[in-house]
């Protein structure tokens, strides 16, 4: 049997033009591995009056697990994108195409009112 290894040691450098680039794909995979949320995705977006944000949209397992899901996605983001400003938003569903890829524009349209509300409320301070 071949020797186990750490593939991350051999990761090629990612393009640097986007500040969220290097850890973004690791974060995508970490979010997929979270069993405490039904779905979770990360969108690198530029929000008005805020700037570049790692927007974490997640579907909680239920109302009771919303806080736990929020903590889990923010912790994953902290591990993979430690320098990024992250904002987690719970949602009832994530619009996807036939391949399962997120329909990012539609999702952001749906989330923007809630994000705006979060950013002027004390809850967002915990992010």
């Amino acid at each position: 049997m071949s020797r186990p290894y750490a593939p991350e040691e051999h990761e090629p450098r990612m393009p640097e033009e986007d500040g969220l680039g290097p850890g973004l794909f690791d974060l995508e995979r970490e979010l997929l591995e979270l069993p405490c949320v039904r779905e979770a995705v990360v969108l690198p977006v530029r929000l008005p009056e805020v700037g570049e944000v790692a927007l974490l949209a997640f579907v909680p397992l239920g109302y009771g697990q919303e806080t736990a899901g929020r903590r889990a996605v923010l912790a994953a983001c902290g591990r993979c994108l430690p320098g990024a400003f992250a904002h987690a938003v719970a949602t009832d569903g994530i619009p996807r195409g036939a391949s399962g890829a997120v329909r990012s524009g539609l999702l952001l349209d749906q989330l923007l009112p809630q994000i705006a509300r979060d950013l002027v409320s004390p809850f967002s301070m915990s992010d």
């Binding site: 393009p15 033009e17 952001l108």
Partner: peptide, 14 residues
Amino acid sequence: TGRSTGPVALARDT
């Protein structure tokens, strides 16, 4: 593990 093109920016009406 990743995409060779890097992250794709989301086109928005800012």
